[in-house]
Amino acid sequence: MDETGKELVLALYDYQEKSPREVTMKKGDILTLLNSTNKDWWKVEVKITVNGKTYERQGAVPAAYVKKL
């Protein structure tokens, strides 16, 4: 869990989004888990830093590609 009490997951593999509802992640990324009720796809929040600014993006990733921490 992070400092706000939200559950975290670890990306076990790289994943490139294939639709606007998904998010890209790299192996080793730590993501915030938002919903894991679907056994195949979990909704997560990814933090992306671009030019020193951090953005948050929500989307789905394959459940088999992440592990709860």
Rank of each mutant, 00 (worst) to 15 (best):
E22K: 03
K67Y: 07
P20H: 10
K67P: 05
L10V: 15
V9S: 01
L10Y: 10
R57V: 09
I48P: 00
A11M: 04
R57D: 03
T32E: 07
D40N: 11
K27V: 06
L69H: 04
L8M: 11
G5R: 14
A64K: 14
D40Y: 15
T37K: 10
T24E: 00
Y65R: 06
E7C: 15
K67R: 12
S36W: 07
L33S: 00
V50A: 09
E7V: 14
S36R: 08
G5Q: 13
E17K: 12
L34R: 02
N51W: 04
N51I: 02
R21V: 10
Y65A: 13
I30M: 06
I30D: 01
G52L: 04
M1K: 12
K6R: 14
V46I: 14
T4L: 12
V44E: 00
M25E: 02
T37N: 12
S36T: 09
D40G: 07
T4H: 13
D2C: 15
K43R: 13
R57Y: 07
T54A: 07
V66L: 15
L10R: 08
Y65I: 08
T24Q: 03
T37D: 15
L8I: 07
I48T: 09
Q58L: 06
G59R: 01
Y55D: 05
K47N: 08
Y55N: 06
E56Q: 14
K6N: 10
E45W: 05
K47M: 10
R57A: 07
W42T: 01
K18Q: 13
T4A: 13
G5F: 12
L69G: 02
N38G: 10
A11D: 01
G59Y: 05
E22V: 03
V9N: 01
V50K: 10
K6A: 10
E56K: 15
L12E: 03
D40T: 12
E22N: 04
A60V: 15
G59H: 01
V44F: 01
Q58V: 14
A63N: 03
Y13S: 07
D29G: 02
A60Y: 15
W41N: 01
S19G: 12
D14L: 04
L31C: 06
Y15M: 00
V46R: 08
N35P: 02
N38A: 08
E3Q: 14
T24L: 02
A64V: 08
A63Y: 03
V50R: 10
A60F: 15
K43A: 11
W41Y: 06
L8K: 12
Q58T: 11
R57T: 07
D2N: 14
K6T: 10
K47G: 05
K67I: 14
T24A: 04
L10A: 04
L33F: 03
